[in-house]
Design a binder for these strands. Structure first.
Lengths: 257, 257
DNA sequence: ACGCTAGAAATGTACGCACATTTAAGCTAG
DNA sequence: CTAGCTTAAATGTGCGTACATTTCTAGCGT
């Protein structure tokens, strides 16, 4: 291995330099196939194993690598579980958890331009966007009207996908490798329009959640989404504590008021 | 100092036993005035400084103690900032952040019994509850109808408090020392009743958030709250990322649809 | 070709030492 | 009596060693 050098003038601790360099190389994809062992790092960087372990310990607590006895450390498996997040994911996963099967009716799947949405994605108005509009069912009843815009340059491979049963994020990850890692949501309470009410089979006096969501992957805007969720059957649940912060738990399926 | 013993048969690592014992003693309040130094722990537990540092390192990353060079470790200052949490706090703090002044009209403040609410607090039906009902204003417009029940045995000192401008949690902490450390919320979208609509000055076709919340302090149910928030002017905002999880940011004040 | 076993390899735990750096206490001088 | 300096104490960093425990691998025998 090439011998790497660290700054020993005392500017920063050796283990911290090592840790930062490893993060850099890790993000560059250098360790995708095999993460070096402790002794290899000792050789490469010419530091003691204690220092190496101090750096690896931080990487471990940060969740970047996982280690076991007798086995070389490995890059932490991509955030599989926590990839889809937010209120929407909470709602839809709770539906599965409650035993109801989900499916969607695709009402539109094409490429079009929309200056307003493009601006929300920090893109030029003329840039083509992939547009997907679905009516999502939980069991036999409509649950939500879901409309998503993604830059066509990224999402074009999704044009011939079948979204009746698969989720957008799974398809996106499978066909393009893109995974959302950040996002923000605005959740509002609204009264659906008569057209929306008909579409969702809403009772006459029911409210709904209107959720706007912008998702990014590696600081690049990837999706802009608007979802209208029936408010008469579904609610958001959250738990919070001083330690764990605010966590959406299984969004509850409330039967009646 | 008394000499403490650890199990060296290999059942659990020494540093882990030490860490757990320190957590136990810390929770018992043994170190409220002074946390022992590393060398003192070396003497007490008869282990090497390396082992002590391993245990303290975990306590540090868990946020239980803070340490600095040349200074003995100290018990981390109690969770000062993160005490009030959740969607409600997010909403009301965002109102302040937007420059609007808040005040409340106290519609009821008394002690009564309510079997349904008591059950939700895991209490017997006959136990008296302090009941506080407020109409909360942001600026000159009503924002929310807020109803709170607390066990009278704990909250009786609040009976003569003036809730026109102070928050319940501040008053509760000041008069009884109780601080919420855990809770859960259910957030639903509803259409307010005509009476509620009149009270909140809602436009005819506006929805609202209905938030039910149960708060606990040290595993003891302390409050049950129902808040109805106007949905035409206020929204919940959240950010989430793979690292930080789901965080409610300043709940937005949306002007129009 | 397959299964089992013994050895090699890697990480986890635990001990020790030395020195740097910062804080806190004590002491001296004005 | 106070200000400033010196010294002691405590943590941070870094090195080394040894052994335990687990995993992987290679070779042996059937």
């Amino acid at each position: 291995m090439t011998e790497r050098r660290l700054d020993r003038t005392g500017g920063q601790p050796l283990w911290k330099q090592l840790q930062q360099d490893l993060v850099r190389r890790l993000r560059a994809g250098e360790f995708d196939d095999l993460f070096p062992g402790e002794l290899a790092l000792v050789e490469d960087y010419q530091v003691s194993r204690h220092t190496v372990r101090q750096a690896l310990g931080k990487l471990r607590t940060d969740g970047l690598i996982v280690a076991e006895r007798g086995r070389q450390p490995r890059v932490a498996t991509a955030p599989e579980i926590r990839q889809p997040m937010g209120a929407l994911y909470s709602l839809f996963s709770s539906v599965e958890a409650s035993g109801l099967t989900q499916h969607s009716v695709v009402r539109a799947l094409d490429v079009r331009a929309d200056g307003v949405i493009a601006a929300r994605l920090d893109l030029e108005a003329s840039i083509p966007l992939l547009y997907l509009e679905r009516l999502r069912f939980a069991g036999d009843e409509p649950l939500a009207l879901d409309r998503v815009w993604l830059p066509a340059s990224l999402a074009e491979p999704l044009l011939d996908a079948d979204f009746t049963h698969t989720s957008l994020y799974n398809e996106l990850a499978a066909r393009t490798g893109i995974r959302l890692d950040h996002g923000r949501e605005d959740i509002r309470a609204v009264v659906p329009t008569p057209a929306e009410r008909t579409l969702l089979h809403c009772p006459p006096e029911a409210a709904a959640f209107s959720i706007n969501r912008q998702g990014t992957s590696q600081n690049r805007p990837v999706e802009w989404r608007h979802t209208l969720v029936r408010g008469d059957r579904f609610a958001l649940s959250a738990e919070f504590s001083a330690n764990t912060g605010y966590r959406l738990t299984a969004g509850a399926v409330t039967h009646t008021a």
